[in-house]
Computed example of a mutant assay.
Amino acid sequence: MTYFEAFFLALLQGFTEFLPISSSAHLILPSAVLGWPDQGLAFDVAVHVGTLAAVIIYFRKEVVSLLTAWVGSMVKKEHNKESKLAWLIILSTIPAALCGLLFKDFIEVYLRSAWVIATTTIVFGLLLWWVDKNSELVKDEYEMTWKKALFLGIAQAMAMIPGTSRSGITITAALYLGFTREAAARFSFLMSIPIITLAGSYLGLKLAMSDISINFGLLSTGVVVSFISAYICIHFFLKLISSMGMTPFVIYRLLLGAGLFAWLSFA
Score class of each variant (00 low, 15 high):
251 I>R: 03
86 A>Y: 03
100 G>E: 08
263 W>F: 15
148 K>Y: 08
104 K>A: 12
104 K>G: 09
74 M>W: 15
98 L>Q: 14
117 I>L: 09
69 A>K: 04
136 E>G: 10
213 S>D: 13
253 R>S: 06
116 V>W: 08
197 T>P: 04
144 M>S: 02
219 L>Q: 11
176 Y>Q: 12
167 S>Q: 11
184 A>N: 05
267 A>G: 13
249 F>E: 00
6 A>P: 06
157 A>Y: 08
77 K>S: 06
236 F>N: 13
156 Q>P: 01
211 D>F: 14
65 S>Q: 15
50 G>S: 06
225 V>Y: 11
38 D>M: 03
260 L>G: 09
205 L>I: 14
213 S>E: 15
267 A>K: 09
199 A>K: 01
179 F>K: 03
17 E>V: 05
266 F>S: 00
234 I>M: 06
60 R>V: 15
203 L>G: 07
219 L>H: 05
177 L>C: 07
213 S>Q: 13
202 Y>A: 02
36 W>Q: 05
132 D>V: 01
80 N>V: 05
23 S>G: 08
99 C>P: 10
134 N>A: 01
28 I>L: 15
221 T>E: 01
233 C>T: 15
14 G>L: 05
236 F>P: 13
117 I>F: 11
108 E>H: 14
65 S>K: 15
66 L>D: 10
81 K>V: 10
197 T>L: 14
105 D>R: 15
61 K>S: 15
216 F>A: 01
4 F>N: 04
187 F>D: 04
89 I>Q: 02
216 F>H: 05
94 I>M: 01
71 V>S: 12
70 W>P: 04
168 G>A: 09
196 I>V: 12
170 T>G: 07
245 G>E: 00
78 E>M: 11
234 I>N: 08
89 I>G: 04
257 G>K: 07
129 W>C: 11
241 I>C: 05
224 V>L: 12
253 R>P: 02
146 W>C: 03
266 F>G: 00
193 I>C: 04
195 I>Y: 02
119 T>A: 14
216 F>L: 12
201 S>Q: 03
49 V>Y: 01
11 L>N: 03
55 V>H: 03
148 K>W: 08
251 I>H: 06
184 A>M: 01
207 L>I: 03
146 W>A: 07
218 L>V: 15
66 L>Q: 08
112 R>T: 11
198 L>E: 04
6 A>W: 07
81 K>I: 13
180 T>R: 03
50 G>A: 06
108 E>V: 14
85 L>P: 11
10 A>M: 08
39 Q>W: 02
209 M>N: 07
256 L>V: 09
54 A>K: 10
115 W>R: 10
164 T>R: 02
88 L>P: 05
248 P>K: 04
186 R>C: 10
77 K>W: 06
224 V>K: 13
200 G>M: 02
175 L>D: 11
